[in-house]
Design a protein around this nucleic acid. Structure first.
Lengths: 204, 204
DNA sequence: TGACATACATACCGACCGGTCTGTATTGTA
DNA sequence: TACAATACAGACCGGTCGGTATGTATGTCA
């Protein structure tokens, strides 16, 4: 184990811009997000931004690669890597993140990945390929976990793991989308519970 | 039955603007959509637009009220009004519209209602209330149809019609969102089939 | 200590935005 | 037919956008 190198002053500036960009794009979308706002909240200037990034799109790509991807892994994928009871684990994840996002208030802005997916995938291939890779990984890991569950006897043999995985990811998009547009906590929670009921029907 | 009054020249102009606005907002989003583009593709001018509408937001509201709402009714709700086998009817609707939207090419732009919901609901109450009303109607009609199915013996008694309805609408959002971001027909179709499998588990 | 690349800061640019203003056809009405 | 209201057309406005050009500190190494 090597300790990570101490961040230089430039690293600090870059990270401040990156964090401000994530927040800006999360709240106002990529097209609606303003570079002027970003450098303002980051406490720096356009010069710094264009020194570290080649432009707005490069900044957006960096947000996906360096912030959103690790977030996806840590939230949804890492907890599944070794479980033999994927149904229980996935239910726990949905219930926990719905609760946490409601408590933190971030639920009104939806899912950062889905927001960018809906807005930018049809318009730009750089976003589309990155986002499709992330969702494909998501589905694949879910399917693998479900397959392990089948083998371990916790999940019904009759299911198609890939179909179920795609429906689960689809539902995640829809649930967070529902919270965002409705700003109705009960509705988001209800949709989550309905999905948990569906997951129960998959038990062996 | 009275025949509708013949459209005046002003009506024609207004409808051309409305149609162009629907297409523009569908493809580029509301914020990303340009009034200049709209009047250009409508073959008219800013003078006409601001004569018929009080501004960009009023135009967006009119698109929701006069185009998107009727589309929702005709597509998803009217076929359900009297059926006693809602599962078959809903499956038919999903399969048909997925196929039709893929054939027409409109699937790459997602669902017009969901697009506006995700983009504008958190930012503007005029959009939010309109959109929430439409989705609430959608859920309510689905739940009513499922309840009729329970009474008619085509749907399992053990289901909670409201929960299932909310999950179905959530899934619609997710499926069309998946088609839009992935631009992958097979993936969208697969998600639809997974939902149909789920619907089959609800049969009596 | 001098030379040079890195890391910013700031003024500025053209393009485009939503919206307004004024002028002019067109239409309805008396 | 005279007049007024409606229905446009098109130039124009202030503001914001992403992006650039230039200048100035700040390290880094010979």
């Amino acid at each position: 184990m090597t300790t990570p190198p101490a961040p230089t002053r430039a690293d600090v500036t870059r990270n401040k811009i990156l964090g401000a960009a994530f927040a800006e794009f999360y709240r106002h979308g990529f097209q609606g997000g303003s570079l002027n706002h970003i450098v303002q909240t980051a406490g720096t200037t356009k010069g710094a931004l264009f020194h570290h990034f080649d432009g707005k799109y490069a900044l957006g790509y960096a947000v996906v690669d360096e912030l959103i991807e690790p977030l996806l892994m840590q939230r949804w994928l890492d907890p599944l890597t070794a479980t033999t009871d994927p149904i229980a684990e996935i239910k726990r994840a949905f219930r926990r993140f719905i609760r946490e996002d409601i408590e933190s208030g971030s639920w009104v802005n939806g899912c950062p990945l889905n927001n960018l997916a809906q807005e930018m995938s049809p318009l730009d291939d750089g976003f589309r390929t990155r986002i499709e890779t992330l969702y494909a990984t998501w589905r694949k890991q879910f399917a693998a976990a479900l397959a392990r569950g089948v083998k371990a006897g916790t999940v019904r043999k009759s299911i198609d793991a890939r179909d179920v995985a795609s429906l689960l990811v689809v539902s995640q998009m829809g649930i967070w989308g529902t919270g965002k547009y409705s700003q109705n906590k009960a509705l988001m929670t209800q949709a989550g519970e309905a999905l948990c009921d569906y997951l129960d029907t998959l038990k062996a």
